[in-house]
């Protein structure tokens, strides 16, 4: 089962290495990992999507909490949170195909980030599942490169993971 874990950490050197090392040595699987600073520049947020049983999730939470640099750990529930991933997709695109691809982009609420004589680069932000759909729609044109950020997530309503 996939779990989305929001982790607030002290913005210290080496903290990402500590967390990545913990996952590796305890045999926890990371699907994606996204890191960025919060509104407090001394605090970073690491959003981890991990795969494992409930037992594994409990161990992940407990072991993360043991790291001195970790301030808070919260597993976000799917139904009470919004998750997004940003993806840049470069597809092959001749001038004849341009209109077609742009109409897909419109349906997907994608931005056209770059365009050349032979390519078009779309910028999409959506849930992982929706992104997978759009990827399939674009595949026939020839995907030249895909770049993803990894999932970030936030709770709905008033709830917040804060220091």
């Amino acid at each position: 089962m996939k779990h989305t874990i929001s982790v607030l950490v002290e913005n210290n050197a080496g903290v990402l290495a500590r967390i990545a090392g913990l996952f590796a040595r305890r045999g926890f699987n990371i699907d994606s990992l996204a890191v960025g600073v919060t509104d407090d520049e001394r605090v970073s947020r690491i959003t981890i999507v991990a795969d494992g049983s409930d037992y594994t999730l409990e161990q992940i939470e407990k072991q993360l909490n043991k790291l001195i640099d970790v301030i808070k750990v919260k597993t976000l529930k799917n139904d009470t949170s919004i998750s997004r991933e940003l993806v840049l997709i470069k597809v092959g695109c001749s001038s004849r195909q341009r209109a077609e691809i742009m109409s897909i982009a419109e349906i997907a609420h994608a931005k056209i980030s770059d365009i050349s004589n032979t390519t078009i680069t779309l910028e999409l932000s959506d849930s992982k599942d929706n992104l997978a759909n759009y990827e399939e729609l674009l595949r026939p044109y020839g995907i030249k490169e895909i770049v993803r950020t990894g999932t970030i997530a936030i709770q709905k309503g008033e709830a917040a993971v804060r220091v």
């Binding site: 080496g14 290495a17 500590r18 090392g21 001195i68």
Partner: peptide
Amino acid sequence: TGSAEPFVKHSYL
């Protein structure tokens, strides 16, 4: 600090 990371409660460089 990197090599000993799995075996320390905490470390500082």
